[in-house]
Amino acid sequence: MQIHYISESNSVLNHFLGQIRNVNIQKDSMRFRRNIERIGEIMAYELSKDLTYKNVEIQTPLGIKHTTEIENDLVLCSILRAGLPLHNGFLNYFDQAENSFVSACRYHPNNDDDFEILVEYQALSNLNNKTVLLLDPMLATGYSIAAVHEKLIENAVPAAIHIVVVIAAPEGIEYLQKTLPENCHLWVASLDEKLNDKKYIIPGLGDAGDLAYGSKL
Protein backbone atom coordinates (compact mmCIF):
# COMPACT_ATOMS: atom_id res chain seq x y z
CA MET A 1 0.00 0.00 0.00
CA GLN A 2 1.32 3.42 -0.97
CA ILE A 3 1.00 6.02 1.80
CA HIS A 4 0.91 9.79 1.28
CA TYR A 5 1.33 12.08 4.31
CA ILE A 6 0.08 15.55 3.40
CA SER A 7 0.69 17.69 6.49
CA GLU A 8 4.43 17.04 6.78
CA SER A 9 5.16 20.49 5.34
CA ASN A 10 3.40 23.58 6.66
CA SER A 11 0.38 24.85 4.76
CA VAL A 12 -3.12 26.15 5.47
CA LEU A 13 -4.08 22.48 5.92
CA ASN A 14 -2.45 22.51 9.37
CA HIS A 15 -4.44 25.64 10.24
CA PHE A 16 -7.74 23.80 9.62
CA LEU A 17 -6.49 20.64 11.33
CA GLY A 18 -5.79 22.69 14.44
CA GLN A 19 -9.30 24.15 14.41
CA ILE A 20 -11.10 20.80 14.16
CA ARG A 21 -9.11 19.58 17.19
CA ASN A 22 -9.55 22.70 19.33
CA VAL A 23 -12.24 22.09 21.97
CA ASN A 24 -13.09 25.80 22.00
CA ILE A 25 -13.72 25.88 18.24
CA GLN A 26 -15.06 22.42 17.38
CA LYS A 27 -18.20 23.01 19.47
CA ASP A 28 -19.54 25.04 16.54
CA SER A 29 -20.94 22.22 14.38
CA MET A 30 -21.28 24.38 11.28
CA ARG A 31 -17.67 25.51 11.52
CA PHE A 32 -16.51 21.95 12.19
CA ARG A 33 -18.30 20.67 9.08
CA ARG A 34 -16.91 23.51 6.98
CA ASN A 35 -13.37 22.91 8.22
CA ILE A 36 -13.61 19.20 7.36
CA GLU A 37 -14.95 20.22 3.95
CA ARG A 38 -12.03 22.60 3.43
CA ILE A 39 -9.59 19.86 4.46
CA GLY A 40 -11.30 17.67 1.85
CA GLU A 41 -10.74 20.33 -0.80
CA ILE A 42 -7.03 20.53 0.04
CA MET A 43 -6.67 16.75 0.03
CA ALA A 44 -8.55 16.52 -3.27
CA TYR A 45 -6.06 18.95 -4.80
CA GLU A 46 -3.10 16.93 -3.52
CA LEU A 47 -4.60 13.64 -4.67
CA SER A 48 -5.35 15.12 -8.09
CA LYS A 49 -1.60 15.20 -8.77
CA ASP A 50 -1.62 11.39 -8.75
CA LEU A 51 -4.42 10.99 -11.31
CA THR A 52 -4.15 10.38 -15.05
CA TYR A 53 -4.61 13.25 -17.51
CA LYS A 54 -5.31 13.49 -21.22
CA ASN A 55 -4.48 16.22 -23.70
CA VAL A 56 -7.41 18.29 -24.92
CA GLU A 57 -8.05 21.35 -27.06
CA ILE A 58 -10.23 24.11 -25.61
CA GLN A 59 -11.96 26.67 -27.82
CA THR A 60 -11.61 30.12 -26.24
CA PRO A 61 -13.23 33.32 -27.57
CA LEU A 62 -9.91 34.16 -29.27
CA GLY A 63 -8.43 30.84 -30.28
CA ILE A 64 -7.48 27.29 -29.30
CA LYS A 65 -5.76 26.39 -26.00
CA HIS A 66 -4.00 23.05 -25.58
CA THR A 67 -4.35 21.80 -22.00
CA THR A 68 -5.12 18.66 -19.98
CA GLU A 69 -8.10 17.27 -18.08
CA ILE A 70 -8.65 14.34 -15.73
CA GLU A 71 -9.00 11.04 -17.58
CA ASN A 72 -9.99 8.84 -14.62
CA ASP A 73 -13.61 7.87 -14.08
CA LEU A 74 -13.94 8.86 -10.42
CA VAL A 75 -16.31 7.53 -7.76
CA LEU A 76 -16.45 9.20 -4.35
CA CYS A 77 -17.49 6.74 -1.65
CA SER A 78 -18.11 8.00 1.88
CA ILE A 79 -18.50 6.03 5.08
CA LEU A 80 -21.63 7.37 6.77
CA ARG A 81 -22.20 9.56 8.61
CA ALA A 82 -18.90 11.19 9.51
CA GLY A 83 -17.63 11.06 5.93
CA LEU A 84 -20.24 13.44 4.53
CA PRO A 85 -18.44 16.79 5.08
CA LEU A 86 -15.23 15.29 3.68
CA HIS A 87 -17.26 14.00 0.72
CA ASN A 88 -18.58 17.51 0.07
CA GLY A 89 -15.04 18.89 -0.03
CA PHE A 90 -13.99 16.33 -2.63
CA LEU A 91 -17.17 16.87 -4.63
CA ASN A 92 -16.41 20.60 -4.79
CA TYR A 93 -13.29 19.71 -6.80
CA PHE A 94 -14.34 16.51 -8.56
CA ASP A 95 -17.82 17.68 -9.48
CA GLN A 96 -18.17 15.15 -12.34
CA ALA A 97 -17.51 12.17 -10.06
CA GLU A 98 -20.12 9.54 -9.32
CA ASN A 99 -21.14 9.10 -5.69
CA SER A 100 -21.53 6.09 -3.41
CA PHE A 101 -22.28 5.71 0.29
CA VAL A 102 -21.77 2.93 2.84
CA SER A 103 -22.57 2.79 6.54
CA ALA A 104 -20.10 1.24 8.99
CA CYS A 105 -20.18 1.36 12.76
CA ARG A 106 -18.73 -0.27 15.84
CA TYR A 107 -21.09 -2.83 17.39
CA HIS A 108 -20.50 -3.87 21.01
CA PRO A 109 -22.49 -7.14 21.41
CA ASN A 110 -21.47 -7.59 25.06
CA ASN A 111 -21.60 -3.91 26.05
CA ASP A 112 -17.88 -3.89 26.75
CA ASP A 113 -14.83 -2.59 24.91
CA ASP A 114 -14.80 -5.46 22.41
CA PHE A 115 -16.51 -4.64 19.12
CA GLU A 116 -17.10 -5.78 15.58
CA ILE A 117 -17.78 -3.69 12.49
CA LEU A 118 -21.26 -3.69 10.99
CA VAL A 119 -21.49 -2.70 7.32
CA GLU A 120 -25.18 -2.30 6.57
CA TYR A 121 -26.58 0.41 4.27
CA GLN A 122 -25.04 0.54 0.80
CA ALA A 123 -25.78 2.81 -2.15
CA LEU A 124 -23.06 1.94 -4.63
CA SER A 125 -22.63 2.99 -8.23
CA ASN A 126 -20.89 0.80 -10.80
CA LEU A 127 -17.30 0.57 -9.57
CA ASN A 128 -15.89 -1.58 -12.36
CA ASN A 129 -12.79 0.02 -13.91
CA LYS A 130 -13.40 3.20 -11.89
CA THR A 131 -10.99 5.08 -9.64
CA VAL A 132 -12.64 4.86 -6.21
CA LEU A 133 -11.92 7.42 -3.50
CA LEU A 134 -12.96 5.93 -0.14
CA LEU A 135 -13.48 8.78 2.34
CA ASP A 136 -13.54 8.59 6.15
CA PRO A 137 -12.27 11.29 8.55
CA MET A 138 -10.82 8.94 11.18
CA LEU A 139 -8.57 5.90 10.78
CA ALA A 140 -8.36 4.29 14.22
CA THR A 141 -8.10 0.48 14.13
CA GLY A 142 -8.56 0.28 10.36
CA TYR A 143 -11.32 -2.32 10.78
CA SER A 144 -14.08 -0.15 9.28
CA ILE A 145 -12.11 0.76 6.18
CA ALA A 146 -11.02 -2.83 5.65
CA ALA A 147 -14.62 -4.05 6.01
CA VAL A 148 -15.93 -1.43 3.57
CA HIS A 149 -13.11 -2.16 1.12
CA GLU A 150 -14.15 -5.83 1.17
CA LYS A 151 -17.73 -4.81 0.31
CA LEU A 152 -16.58 -2.56 -2.52
CA ILE A 153 -14.66 -5.33 -4.28
CA GLU A 154 -17.26 -8.03 -3.59
CA ASN A 155 -18.99 -7.57 -6.94
CA ALA A 156 -16.70 -5.13 -8.75
CA VAL A 157 -13.12 -4.66 -9.88
CA PRO A 158 -12.13 -0.99 -9.53
CA ALA A 159 -9.19 0.29 -11.56
CA ALA A 160 -7.72 1.82 -8.38
CA ILE A 161 -8.72 2.57 -4.80
CA HIS A 162 -7.54 5.66 -2.91
CA ILE A 163 -8.38 5.76 0.81
CA VAL A 164 -8.56 9.27 2.25
CA VAL A 165 -8.49 9.99 6.00
CA VAL A 166 -8.03 13.20 7.95
CA ILE A 167 -6.54 11.76 11.16
CA ALA A 168 -4.89 8.35 11.47
CA ALA A 169 -3.36 6.23 14.22
CA PRO A 170 -0.22 4.16 13.51
CA GLU A 171 -2.06 0.98 14.52
CA GLY A 172 -4.72 1.55 11.86
CA ILE A 173 -2.15 2.19 9.16
CA GLU A 174 -0.27 -0.97 10.13
CA TYR A 175 -3.50 -2.99 9.97
CA LEU A 176 -4.35 -1.68 6.50
CA GLN A 177 -0.82 -2.41 5.29
CA LYS A 178 -1.33 -6.04 6.30
CA THR A 179 -4.90 -6.29 4.99
CA LEU A 180 -5.25 -4.29 1.78
CA PRO A 181 -3.65 -4.93 -1.64
CA GLU A 182 -0.35 -3.27 -2.49
CA ASN A 183 -1.94 -1.19 -5.27
CA CYS A 184 -4.15 0.74 -2.80
CA HIS A 185 -3.23 4.31 -1.92
CA LEU A 186 -3.69 5.80 1.56
CA TRP A 187 -3.84 9.60 1.92
CA VAL A 188 -3.37 10.91 5.48
CA ALA A 189 -3.75 14.55 6.48
CA SER A 190 -2.37 14.05 10.00
CA LEU A 191 -0.70 11.10 11.76
CA ASP A 192 -1.41 10.93 15.51
CA GLU A 193 0.38 9.16 18.36
CA LYS A 194 -1.57 6.01 19.21
CA LEU A 195 -4.85 4.35 20.19
CA ASN A 196 -6.00 4.24 23.80
CA ASP A 197 -7.49 1.19 25.56
CA LYS A 198 -10.88 1.87 23.99
CA LYS A 199 -9.33 2.07 20.51
CA TYR A 200 -9.83 5.83 20.19
CA ILE A 201 -7.17 8.03 18.57
CA ILE A 202 -4.88 10.01 20.89
CA PRO A 203 -4.81 13.02 20.82
CA GLY A 204 -7.46 12.82 18.07
CA LEU A 205 -10.42 15.16 18.15
CA GLY A 206 -13.35 13.17 19.54
CA ASP A 207 -16.21 11.65 17.54
CA ALA A 208 -16.22 13.31 14.10
CA GLY A 209 -19.80 12.28 13.37
CA ASP A 210 -21.10 13.70 16.65
CA LEU A 211 -19.15 16.93 16.21
CA ALA A 212 -20.56 17.37 12.71
CA TYR A 213 -24.17 16.31 13.27
CA GLY A 214 -24.85 15.97 17.01
CA SER A 215 -24.71 13.06 19.42
CA LYS A 216 -26.52 9.80 18.71
CA LEU A 217 -28.20 7.22 20.91
Rank of each mutant, 00 (worst) to 15 (best):
M1G: 01
M1N: 02
S7H: 06
S9D: 04
S11T: 09
L13H: 07
H15P: 10
F16K: 06
Q19S: 09
R21W: 05
N22Q: 09
V23N: 03
V23S: 05
N24H: 14
D28F: 12
D28V: 07
S29H: 10
M30H: 10
R31S: 11
F32K: 07
R33S: 10
R33I: 00
N35S: 09
I36Q: 05
E37C: 12
E37F: 07
G40A: 07
M43H: 03
A44M: 04
Y45D: 07
Y45Q: 04
K49I: 00
K49S: 14
D50T: 15
N55M: 09
E57N: 06
Q59T: 02
Q59A: 02
P61R: 10
G63V: 09
I64E: 07
K65D: 10
D73I: 05
S78Q: 08
L84C: 12
L84D: 11
L86N: 04
N88G: 09
N88C: 05
F90T: 01
D95Y: 11
N99S: 14
S100F: 02
V102T: 00
R106Q: 08
Y107I: 15
Y107D: 15
H108F: 13
N111H: 11
F115W: 08
F115I: 08
L118K: 09
E120F: 12
Y121T: 10
A123V: 15
L124E: 04
L127A: 01
L127K: 02
N128L: 00
N129S: 10
K130S: 02
L134D: 02
P137D: 01
P137N: 07
M138I: 07
M138A: 14
A146K: 13
H149W: 03
E150H: 12
E150N: 15
K151M: 13
N155K: 15
A160S: 11
I161A: 01
I167G: 13
I167C: 14
I173P: 14
Y175R: 15
T179S: 11
L180Q: 02
L180C: 04
E182Y: 09
H185A: 15
L186S: 05
L195V: 12
I201H: 08
G204E: 03
L205M: 08
G206M: 00
D210W: 08
